[in-house]
């Protein structure tokens, strides 16, 4: 069942006098429950596509439909509400709020939801438990290792139970052991919770955790292959 559909999706930036076209009439479909790795050289449009899927950037032309919602038709505030309901985003550099501890960082997206403090507490505790960092809930980002920070970031991304989990090079700043742990966690979330995950990566080892590899080049889909695992 298709969750994401891109029809001639194009994004154009104006870089001075030069026109930059990181996505150029991209056609793509991703099914619900798939774990997708976006690969390709720098400038191939991976991150631009991820930003469009996350609703933090808007297409210049073409159509992007996620879960039957045409993203380009939403107003600024509607898009924010849509993000809160449907998207979990994991950044390469974690992007935790430094003055908040792990628990409070994970709680952030729930502040937008009409729920009691008790319910929030249960949801945050459960998310921290899932990523295996519950014992570090009172630690601030500066007191955590890179791998632990990324686990907190994943907990923050899944705490709202989003339709779509997006990850921009989630292991790009981690050592090998931490990277493996993070990827196993994402794989588990995909397999056990049925989460649809779209991940940008340069690393073929990391990409092996996905069940669909999409190779982009110059803003177009170059190749689509099923992963070996």
């Amino acid at each position: 069942m298709t969750l994401i559909r891109c029809d001639k999706l194009t994004r154009v930036y104006q870089g001075g006098v030069e026109e930059i076209r990181p996505l150029d009439e991209l056609d793509l479909a991703i099914d619900r429950g798939q774990f997708v790795a976006l690969m390709g050289p720098s400038g191939s449009g991976k991150t631009t596509l991820l930003n469009l899927l996350a609703g933090i950037d808007r297409p210049t032309s073409g159509r992007l439909v996620i879960d039957d919602q045409s993203i380009g038709e939403l107003s600024r505030n509607e898009l924010a509400a849509w993000r809160a309901d449907h998207v979990g985003y994991v950044f390469q550099l974690y992007n935790l709020v430094p003055v908040l501890n792990a628990y409070e960082n994970v709680e952030l997206p729930l502040l937008l939801k009409p729920m009691s403090q008790r319910e929030r507490h249960e949801r945050v505790s459960a998310a921290l438990e899932v990523v295996g960092i519950a014992d570090r809930h009172a630690h601030y980002p500066r007191q955590l290792s890179g791998g632990q920070e990324q686990r907190v970031a994943i907990a923050r991304a899944i705490v709202t139970e989003p339709t779509l989990l997006l990850a921009d090079e989630p292991t790009g700043d981690l050592d090998k052991a931490s990277a493996t742990a993070v990827m196993e966690l994402l794989k588990r979330l995909n397999q056990e919770q049925g989460r649809t995950i779209v991940m940008v990566t340069h690393d073929t080892t990391t990409a092996e955790y996905a069940d669909l590899l999409l190779h982009l080049e110059k803003g177009r889909l170059l190749e689509k292959e099923e992963a070996s695992t």
Binding site: R76, A80, R83, V97, P98
Partner: peptide
């Protein structure tokens, strides 16, 4: 700037 961008990504509106 980064924190606010993260909050917006999480669904916080500009307002």
């Amino acid at each position: 700037i980064r924190d606010h961008a993260v909050l917006q990504t999480l669904g916080f509106t500009g307002g």
